[in-house]
């Protein structure tokens, strides 16, 4: 008798096969966790490379290449940053942007003046401004640092930042994988975080939409959209390494990976097609930018190209934030950019 009931239950559950639960699971296992692990791997590579350069066993070009890969992995992860990395000030430890007052230079130099032989504990206890990729970029690319001639001063910091990042990403990946961790919370419902797959999917979509909104800010701020059209080149993300556009592209790719899975839930073929096209347009235009963003924003002739890219990002955001959210019956909620 009991087996009959059990059988009925199994049949019932199979019949259910909630497509949203299925998509949440796919996203967690095939998109979100792998992106976190890729980011962790890039931090490990950065640590190895920093040590090697500081031991004079690697060329600066190689260290810079590895650093770019870390930036890219982090940029791709941002629209996928649901859960542990978004909590506390973890993500703030990875990057400090915008940095209008050049806090990164001031705080980095002040830290190294205070602690001649910087140790890990001192760095781990310091401000987020000096713990992340922004400070690493400053050391590697700022003319004032002249890293090649000042290895002794800056190497403890370079290795320290890479180690800090690697420990941070190890902790985050562990928070995903541990029993009852983020992966489980995105795949078994209800749990402490999500009452249902719907809620989980809403959470993922919200982070992804916020990620696209942040891209508008990252493009619009240096363009001067908040400054009467006067360009603000130093407010471009990653302006020192001239990596802004590459970061934007990686973030769009991350956002699109979420969309590819959610797409299966959208009954409106016209809407799905519009969103596909919007991603393609934005990616094509980003890939076609002929010069670093901080240079383009200062060049009058480049304005139409940047304006049209901004308009396309805006269109993409609205398609997802309004039309897609409505189609799925998901409330996007507030994000950290509201109120700017």
């Amino acid at each position: 008798m009991r087996s009959v009931v059990l059988l009925l239950l199994v049949v019932a559950l199979a019949a259910c096969s909630n497509p949203r639960e299925e998509v949440a699971k796919q996203l967690a296992n095939q998109v979100l966790l792998p992106a976190h692990e890729q980011w962790h791997a890039s931090n490990t590579a950065l640590l190895d490379s920093s040590r090697a350069w500081c031991a004079d066993e690697q060329a600066m070009e190689d260290l810079k290449r590895v650093f770019h890969e870390t930036q890219t992995a982090w940029a791709r992860l941002q629209p996928l940053m649901v859960g542990p990395l978004a909590e506390g000030n973890r993500s703030w430890q990875v990057q400090f942007w915008p940095d209008k007052r050049n806090m990164v230079a001031r705080q980095t130099e002040a830290l190294l003046d205070e602690f001649g032989d910087l140790d890990q504990q001192q760095l781990d206890g310091a401000s987020v401004v000096v713990q992340g990729l922004t400070a690493f970029e400053y050391v590697l690319f700022d003319d004032k640092v002249a890293i090649a001639d000042n290895r002794e001063r800056y190497c403890p910091l370079l290795v320290g930042i890479a180690r800090h990042q690697q420990a941070l990403s190890a902790e985050v990946v562990d928070l995903w994988r541990q029993p009852g961790g983020m992966l489980e919370q995105l795949t078994r419902f209800p749990n402490d975080r999500y009452a249902s797959a719907d809620e989980a999917l809403g959470g993922i979509l919200r982070v992804q939409v916020t990620g696209v909104d942040t891209l508008k800010k990252k493009l619009g701020t240096p363009m001067g959209r908040h400054n009467n059209g006067v360009p603000q080149p130093y407010q471009a993300e990653a302006w020192r390494s001239r990596h802004s556009a590459e970061n934007l592209l990686a973030s769009v790719e991350g956002a699109q990976a979420v969309w590819e899975r959610i797409r299966t839930l959208v009954g409106d073929a016209q809407l799905a097609g519009d969103i596909d096209a919007a991603y393609k347009t934005v990616r094509d235009k980003l890939a076609a930018l002929p010069a670093p963003l901080m240079e383009m924003v200062q060049d009058k002739a480049s304005q139409p190209q940047l304006q049209s890219l901004y308009a396309d990002l805006d269109a993409l955001e609205n398609l997802q934030q309004t039309d897609l959210a409505r189609q799925l019956g998901i409330q996007i909620g507030f994000n950290a950019n509201d109120g700017d």
């Binding site: 400090f96 401000s127 401004v129 507030f334 109120g339 700017d340």
Partner: peptide
């Protein structure tokens, strides 16, 4: 509701407290 939520999260918790705290920045 938008006024309440935007002030609560993005502006007060974020711009006015978290930025200053995370960067230890009195400016």
């Amino acid at each position: 509701l938008f006024g309440m939520g935007s002030l609560s999260l993005g502006e007060l918790a974020g711009e006015r407290m978290k930025v200053a705290l995370a960067a230890h920045s009195p400016e």
